Computed example of a mutant assay.
Amino acid sequence: MKYMTATEAAEKWGISSRRVHTLCAGGRIEGASRLGNAWAIPKDAEKPDDARIKSGKYKKR
């Protein structure tokens, strides 16, 4: 299987590399694994949906 770095994934998906790191750490990218201090992301991995609040209003609990 071929892998890409977080920076390559960020360029491919149009998001920041920091956001890719956050997605990997949260287990949102399937097949991503940590190699030392870098993330190895499968080349065929798809960008996960954005689960952050988009309305600008926070939901009350």
Rank of each mutant, 00 (worst) to 15 (best):
M1W: 05
M1S: 05
K2S: 14
Y3N: 00
M4G: 00
M4E: 05
M4F: 05
T5D: 09
T5H: 06
T5P: 03
A6W: 09
A6H: 06
T7V: 07
T7P: 00
T7R: 15
T7H: 11
T7N: 15
E8N: 05
E8C: 01
E8S: 03
A9R: 10
A10F: 15
A10L: 12
A10T: 05
E11A: 03
E11P: 00
E11F: 03
K12A: 01
W13N: 01
W13P: 00
G14R: 10
G14L: 07
I15K: 02
I15A: 00
I15P: 00
S17L: 04
S17K: 15
S17E: 15
R18I: 03
R18C: 04
R19F: 07
H21A: 10
H21I: 09
T22H: 08
L23V: 02
L23I: 11
C24I: 05
C24Y: 04
A25L: 05
A25Y: 07
G26Q: 15
G27Y: 12
G27Q: 12
G27N: 12
R28Q: 05
R28L: 08
E30V: 11
E30K: 14
E30P: 02
E30Y: 11
G31E: 10
G31I: 13
G31V: 12
G31R: 12
A32Q: 02
A32V: 01
A32W: 06
R34F: 02
R34L: 11
R34I: 02
L35F: 14
L35R: 14
L35I: 09
L35E: 11
G36C: 06
G36H: 09
G36N: 07
G36W: 03
N37T: 13
N37L: 12
N37Q: 13
W39Q: 00
W39V: 00
A40T: 04
A40L: 15
A40D: 07
A40E: 08
A40N: 14
P42W: 02
P42T: 07
P42V: 09
P42R: 08
D44L: 12
D44P: 04
D44N: 10
D44E: 14
A45K: 10
A45I: 11
A45W: 10
E46V: 14
E46G: 11
E46S: 15
K47Y: 01
K47D: 02
K47R: 14
P48Y: 06
P48T: 09
P48R: 09
D49H: 09
D50P: 09
D50I: 08
A51P: 02
A51M: 11
A51I: 14
R52I: 04
R52N: 05
R52K: 09
K54W: 03
K54G: 10
K54Q: 13
K54I: 07
S55I: 10
S55R: 13
S55C: 08
G56P: 04
G56K: 05
K57I: 15
K57E: 10
K57D: 12
Y58I: 13
Y58E: 12
K59V: 13
K59I: 14
K60P: 04
K60H: 07
K60L: 13
R61K: 11
R61E: 07
R61C: 04
